[in-house]
Structures are given as C-alpha cells and as structure tokens.
Write a protein that binds this DNA or RNA. Sequence first.
DNA 1: TTAAAAAACTAATAACCGTTAGTTTTGTAT
DNA 2: ATACAAAACTAACGGTTATTAGTTTTTTAA
Lengths: 196, 196
Amino acid sequence: MAKIKAIKNGSKKDVISLKAAILFRKKGYNASSMRELADNLGVEAPSLYNHIGSKSEILQNICFKVANDFNQQLSEVEKMAGNTMIKLETLIRFHIHMMLDSFDEVYVANHEWKQLEEPCLSNFLTQRKVYESRLIEIISMGIRNGELKKMHPHVAALIILSAVRSLEFWQRHKKNMNISALEDDMVTHLLNGIIK
Amino acid sequence: MAKIKAIKNGSKKDVISLKAAILFRKKGYNASSMRELADNLGVEAPSLYNHIGSKSEILQNICFKVANDFNQQLSEVEKMAGNTMIKLETLIRFHIHMMLDSFDEVYVANHEWKQLEEPCLSNFLTQRKVYESRLIEIISMGIRNGELKKMHPHVAALIILSAVRSLEFWQRHKKNMNISALEDDMVTHLLNGIIK
DNA sequence: TTAAAAAACTAATAACCGTTAGTTTTGTAT
DNA sequence: ATACAAAACTAACGGTTATTAGTTTTTTAA
C-alpha cells in the first residue's frame, strides 16, 4: 500500500534508479533481486514494472547516465581556453566530484557494466574507449606543445584514471579526511608527475 | 565421458580453479553457472562435485590463494635489508608480475570478493586491511628516515595500489607494449613521486 | 461526485540455479 | 582377470529469479 516517494525534480523511475544504484553497489547487480530492491522502496516487486521496463534497463540507465555526464564534461574541457594543465586539472576535479557526489552510480558503472546486455555492452565499451582516446589526445597535445614531459600519453592517461578511481577506497575514510584537501593533494600529485 | 585433465604438479581441483578464474573474470561470479564451468571442462556439472565442495569454495580458493601470495611476499620485503625505495620497488614489481602472470585470479580476487560468504568475507576484508596497514608502515618508516618526502603515507599507499591495479586495463594492449619497459616506467613514475 | 488513469496488490509461471542421489563407466593395483 | 576406488553419468529436487496477468486500490481531473 505504500507508495514510492518521488524526489524533488525527479520521476519515480529516478528514485528506483537511485535505490538500485545503492543496492547494486553493495551486493553486485546479479546478487541483487528485484524483490530486495522493491523491499527497499517499501513496495512489492511486480509494482516496479509500472515504472520500469526490466531489471537490466535499470542498469543501463545507471551506466549510460554516468557515461553521459563524463562525456559532456570532457566536451566542455575540449572547448576550454587555457593550457593543458588547466584542462587536466578541471577534468581530474570533475572525476573526483563525480566519485564523491554520485558514488554509487559511478561505482556501479565501473564494476557492473559487464552485466549489460548486447547491444548496450558494446555501446558502453565503445564509449569508454572513445573517452580514453580523447583524454589521450589532450595529453598528446600538451606533450607536442612542450607543456608536458615527453612520455607515453597512454601511460599518463591510465595513471590519472586509476588514481581518481582509487577514491572508491576513500569512501570509508570519509569522516577522517578533509575532502577538499584530499582533492588538492591528488591534483597536485598527479599533475606534478607529468608537468614539465 | 571426457575426463578433467590434471595439469603438471596440480590436482584436478586446481584445474577447476583455474578454469573458474577465467570464467569468473569474464562473466562475474554470479553470472557464471556450474553448468557453464563444467562445459568449459568438457564434463557435466554434477561431476565437478567429485572434486570440489561447492561453488563458493572455488571462489574462496581463488581469493585466499591470491591473498596468501601477496602476504607472503610482503613478509619477505619486511625482512629485507636495504632502504625503503628498494623495498617499495620490490613490492611494486611483485604486484605487476602477479597482475600479468595470474591475471584472472588477481582480477577475480579484486572484483568478486563481495560474493564470499561469511565468515570468509570478514576474513578476507581483514587481511586486506592488514596488508594496507603494513604497506603504510613501510612508507611511514621511510618518511621518518627522511628517505621519502613528507606526505600522508595513506595517500601514497593508495596511489601505488591503484596504479598497479590499473594494469588490469593493460591486458588488452599486451601485444602492443613491451612489458618490462612498462614495468620500469611504472616503477620509476611511482617512486619518483614520493622519493625525496 | 464520478470517471479515468496511475500504481499498488496477489497469484502464478517458466526458466535457471546449485546441489544430491543413485548408477554406470573408467582407471588402477593386485 | 578381478576387485576396488575414482570419476563420470542421468535424473531430479527444492529454491530463487525476473516477469506476466489479472485485480484492486489510490490518485487525479472534470
């Protein structure tokens, strides 16, 4: 009899998506049942199908919403004026904020994309590959400009991406750390490694 | 009628474990069925139970074998003579080799430990925490000695761990890259960031 | 107040899962 | 050759899953 409470500026589908992201992060996509998700929403499982098409559709929504956010920000950075360092700093800070603000969704996109069904899976993987290429191109340009050290841009990109991803592990230490100090530390550390 | 071929110096249980690691890495633990694992071994699913106790036992074997390997190497490094840099270099190179030589097992231990059942789950998490603490202690000692820059040892440890973990993504580029050059690059890059 | 639409419910289904039981085949050692 | 053990097989079970169908309740709008 309970109803799904819609969030401000969000459909009930969005509420389901949000709760699903939390559940999928904690237990994994396949280990999360629709019954448990419904339970978390105070509702019976079949009721969910008034709002969503299928379980895998929820995963798709989560993964592609995250991918779109990252792609959009990357586009803005590409259009940005300024030197390579500022572009990279902007991008790194965005990654950090996404990881801290939309932790569950980003985590699920990073860990559960394998459970996407075709053709979504291929689509997602292509997007990741393209994102990586665009980041590498920004770094390459910085190397050509002489702004960055001579290095393999692929390696630099991976180090940056893996470092921001390590923030996953910081979730549990959140209370003990000053977030903005952490952010500055990480930006400095990563950029110092590649700036000339 | 086909039989499970035992590997040199390995029981049939080990062969199952190995094939399971490959399957679990590709599809995830929960998305991998015993029937599919058996298929990969040329056998019917119930036949597996002549060699193993349960599906979750396989996951346990994979996760704790990896954990033991890392713990053992860490113990040797702690007993090592030499300065902090050499210790860290040894450890980083070991991580890289584990990632390249036992890719599937390490990947599964990193990605599927959540699917362990209690009390294995708690045991595993404790081991990870202790491992991290011991690494942090090595770094702290280096800072106290004046060998390393003044920095938060926790941050340094996470950057190192996340960087070697990023080698997961390198699997697919294996052919295009010189592995030992990559290893040297990564060691240099990581240590340059923290050495005084 | 009433009709329509939205969203909850109960009941049920077909598919798949890990696993067990019981049996037959295969390999090994006397 | 024969006996024993190891390891394969078939058949099946109980449980869980996502999902559908059909119905009832709740909300919305006129």
